[in-house]
Nucleic acid binder design. Structure first.
Length: 870
RNA sequence: GGGCCCAUAGCUCAGCUGGUUAGAGCGCUGCCUUCACACGGCAGAGGUCAGAGGUUCGAGUCCUCUUGGGCCCACCA
């Protein structure tokens, strides 16, 4: 709820004003006064709920975070002042692979689930240089270290956010690994399972051999890597020669299950249906036709291996081929010769490859092929894109494994179209970002793989029965009851069993995997909004009003949240999505991690002040990449200081009259004051319209533009009059105060510290809970005033100043005589403000002449003789 | 190959549905401190709005093409 501005009984203007110390002072007061505390009693229609992005707690916040979180805070503060009760929680994403990796490197440990728990374990003081020397610790010890480190990080992050002035309700904080998140995440998963949206499949999937885990489509990225085409000879079984195949992965020849060519390719048509035998291993494989084979590539014939790339998976599935995988989960070739190698020569050849990594296996295979004469010519070096896990550093392999999936439209046109249509329900800021969402869905190739073979995350909440013969029955998962959540199936036994039955015939096993980090963060509205523990809150905040986030995670966070909400709530999770841009180096390149980390946000806030850094951030338009620019922070600092000083001046003039009643609009009678207020009224409308479109940058720009004219022209013009007595002085002061009151509120979202400081000198309560200004506050000032007046007076002022500048004299120098010749209507205007102009220009005499032919007012100023200057 | 964004002063950017002579800040140059502010103020110089064509009485703004930059997706034998 907001309050109309209410003046304090006494105005206290400090002798000196500075920005230093405002962050601590107001940060503490806002906290102790609960200024940003969400009022749970607020009616639903008053609530403005923000689905805050939980930053990853796996390092440090960088300048890009400061940038985008400031944008959201400006919107939050605006909405709050508009009378909305803002639900603005903060989350920490401490769940997932980045945290695991950071913990490993920070403490020099690695998780080995076979190691027993050590209650007294203390990590080494310093991590060894070589990862091989890291200490192996139990899963429980590892998770304890994750929690210890993320706990420390979260305190540091919160301190930074507070200093930046985010108007977060810190009582609403969550972490993506805390008990509530685990419960929500597991319950939502079980709901998906119950509705048939979550399922298991034993299928080939992208696999990171370093992390030893499956990876989903959303986590893939291409990186250019050197490779080479190798021409291999497959031997026709009719003895009529060889079929040549070009491949970049000769080591996979052992996994070859068929050759394939395009059905229309005349070169291979005679061979379709026949078999060839593979080089080195002599395995008979069929020659098949499929439209995905490209006659232009290589020789037009490709070998299908299980599995070299995703096209292999398609061919394997559609042509119903056997799986002959040799690469294991560790990225090494199986140590025993595969059973499909039925010739002694083939088995001998394989012995050379057994146990090798992919690179070494390729080298060895090439040597063997060269020796056998089945490698034709020299390999041709190329550079080609290779798929990587976005956080990994070894190329992905394709490994067949049992995994959990959630339907996301990747294999279901109907669901796909529903999700695309949900995108239309959102207002996207900027609007073109919707295309990225739609494009991503249209390009999905499969469902969402949610299981991860990692340790620090939310466990998949199921067990499986172990049959009497010791076989695990994956088709009949045992699910926990909701009341027991969250559970860890690795340490909790399902109801009806006890721990002694774990892994025993007739007993159970726990699912060893955890969920993808997005499987939990896709539920941030549910986690923060009380979905499973506070139905009253949930009814008020869902669907939320705003999802602010970076545009690079549209395909992950935004999309997955939409999927969960669509499946569970049959609704879009928010009304608005605001996508922020990148921070770029001054040379226009995307600011790299290393460079971004050189610029430490706390240091920036220290050097420039929080309002100054916020000013820079808020100058970046929604969705637009913005250059990192400290000079903009200096400009922001200057603006904040100017706001303090101009306010000090205005408020130092004293009340318009001793009588409180005369305060306000009724005292404003002078035409120049009325015209100024009319400009403020227009400014308020313009800033409000911008903010309603989430355009904090436009609102700031408009406000700032007016503010500088206000101080440079209007205040200079009226200050002498304002010092005086009588109705004209009262008019000046009343107008200045009305304008200041509005300006402070207009600046409050962007410069919360300076605005609050000034507000506290003369107003009750926090400016951040004050009513957003309205043009109605200025009554009929607009209709009573002359819109041409401010521009005209500013012009005359500028001409007089120019004359002084050209005479190389100070602005306080008295001008003996100034004359203006202008059209009659302009002269009439200038007569109204002649006294102000004389005072402001410090002119002793101002002569106005009507010149009916003048297009522009012509100003001539004559300076007093040097000895009279002063 | 598909999609999206961008190109305006030396630099960073405004310019919203087309409408006087294209704006701001920084930087640069010059001048000015008792009297809100030197963490300041005033003033000045600086632009073929990437290029070409089109629509229009009128185009930085709308359309088409070209060039250059960036991003996303697809392709990966």
């Amino acid at each position: 709820m907001t309050d109309a501005p209410r003046r304090r009984s006494t105005t206290t203007v400090p002798e000196k004003a500075a920005l230093e110390g405002l962050e601590d002072k107001w940060g503490e007061r806002w906290e102790s006064n609960g200024t940003f505390r969400f009022d749970t009693a607020a009616p639903a229609q008053a609530v403005f709920a923000i689905d805050t992005p939980p930053p990853t707690v796996s390092g440090s916040l960088h300048v890009g975070h400061v940038f985008s979180y400031t944008h959201t805070d400006c919107v939050a503060r605006y909405q709050r002042m508009r009378g909305r009760e803002v639900f603005y929680p903060m989350g920490w994403d401490d769940n997932g692979v980045p945290t695991e990796r950071r913990v490993e490197n920070y403490y020099g440990v690695r998780c080995d689930p076979t190691v027993p728990y050590d209650a007294d374990f203390e990590p080494p003081g310093q991590a060894p240089k070589n990862r091989r020397d890291f200490v192996a610790i139990s899963r429980r010890n590892f998770i304890e270290l994750c929690e210890r480190l993320t706990g420390e990080d979260e305190l540091v992050f919160e301190a930074l956010w507070r200093r930046l002035g985010l108007s977060v309700d810190w009582t609403q904080t969550y972490t993506t690994i805390d008990e509530r998140s685990r419960r929500v995440s597991q319950r939502a998963f079980l709901d998906n399972l119950a509705r048939g949206e979550a399922y298991q499949a034993d299928a080939p999937s992208m696999w990171d051999i370093t992390f030893r885990m499956a990876v989903s489509q959303a986590e893939l990225e291409d990186r250019p890597r050197p490779g080479a085409y190798h021409d291999l000879a497959f031997h026709r079984s009719d003895g009529e020669g060889d079929v040549v195949v070009s491949t970049t992965r000769p080591e996979l020849v052992v996994s070859c299950v068929a050759l394939v060519a395009h059905p229309d390719d005349e070169r291979y048509q005679p061979l379709f249906g026949s078999t060839v035998s593979s080089p080195l291993f002599g395995v008979e494989v069929p020659v098949l036709a499929h439209h995905l084979a490209d006659p232009e590539k290589g020789t037009g014939a490709a070998m299908i291996c299980t599995f070299g790339d995703l096209t292999d998976v398609i061919w394997w599935r559609e042509l119903d081929l056997p799986a002959r995988a040799v690469i294991g989960r560790d990225g090494r070739f199986a140590s025993d010769p595969p059973e499909w190698l039925d010739t002694p020569a083939g088995r001998t050849a394989y012995e050379q490859l057994a146990g090798l990594g992919v690179k070494a296996a390729q080298r060895t295979t090439v040597e063997l092929l060269t020796a056998s004469g089945e490698l034709l010519g020299e390999p041709t070096a190329i550079e080609h894109p290779v798929k990587f896990y976005e956080k990994g550093d070894a190329p992905l392999e394709i490994v067949q494994s049992r995994q959990w999936y959630i339907r996301n439209g990747g294999r279901d046109p109907e669901l796909r179209n529903e999700l695309i249509a949900r995108g239309d329900e959102l207002a996207w800021h900027p609007s073109f970002m919707q295309a990225r969402y739609t494009n991503w869905i249209e390009g999905l190739t499969g469902d969402w793989l949610v299981s991860r073979q990692r340790y620090f995350g939310v466990p998949i909440p199921v067990w499986y029965p172990v049959e009497a013969n010791g076989e695990v029955n994956y088709d009949q998962p045992i699910v926990p009851s909701e009341a027991d959540l969250p559970i860890d199936p690795q340490s909790d036994a399902p109801r009806g069993y006890d721990e002694t039955q774990r892994s025993q015939p007739g007993g159970f096993v726990g699912d060893p995997d955890i969920m993808d980090t997005w499987a939990t963060s896709s539920l941030t509205p549910q986690i923060a909004g009380g979905w499973d523990h506070d139905p009253e809150l949930w009814a008020k905040v869902f669907p939320m009003d705003l999802r602010p986030q970076a545009h690079d995670i549209i395909r992950t966070w935004l999309f997955s949240t939409m999927v969960r909400s669509h499946l569970a709530e049959d609704a879009a999770p928010w009304h608005h999505a605001a996508l922020s841009g990148w921070i770029l180096d001054p040379d226009r390149k995307k600011m790299s991690k290393s460079k971004g980390n050189v610029v430490v946000p706390t240091d920036l806030l220290e050097r420039h002040g929080s309002d100054a850094v916020r000013y820079w951030a808020a100058s970046g338009r929604p969705g637009t990449d913005t250059a990192f620019d400290e000079t903009q922070m200096k400009v922001g600092r200057r603006l904040a200081i100017k706001l303090l000083n101009a306010s000090r001046f205005v408020l130092g003039l004293g009340a318009p009259m001793a009588d409180e009643e005369s305060l306000g609009l009724s005292a404003v009678t002078h035409p120049i004051d009325l015209a100024m207020l009319a400009e403020v009224a227009a400014l308020v409308d313009s800033a409000t319209a911008a903010f309603d479109e989430f355009d904090y940058a436009r609102a700031l720009e408009r406000t700032e533009e007016f503010f500088w004219r206000f101080t440079d022209d209007h205040v200079e013009l009226v200050k002498t009059r304002a010092y005086g007595d009588g109705p004209d002085a009262a008019s000046a002061r009343a107008a200045l105060e009305l304008a200041l009151s509005a300006l402070l509120r207009l600046f409050a979202p962007h410069l919360p510290f300076a605005a609050e400081e000034v507000w506290s000198w003369w107003m009750d309560g926090s400016v951040h809970r004050a009513e957003w200004p309205s043009s109605a506050e200025f009554g009929d000032a607009a209709t009573r005033s002359d819109p041409a007046l401010p521009g005209l007076t500013a012009r005359v002022l500028r001409e007089i100043r120019r004359a002084k500048t050209e005479a190389r004299t100070g602005m306080r120098t008295t001008v003996e005589h100034a004359s203006v010749s202008a059209r009659g209507d302009d002269v009439a205007r200038l007569e109204l403000v002649r006294n102000d102009l004389c005072d402001a220009g410090v002119v002793t005499e101002l002569v106005l002449t009507v010149d009916p032919n003048a297009t522009e007012p012509k100003v001539v100023a004559t300076l007093a003789p040097a000895d009279e200057r002063g």
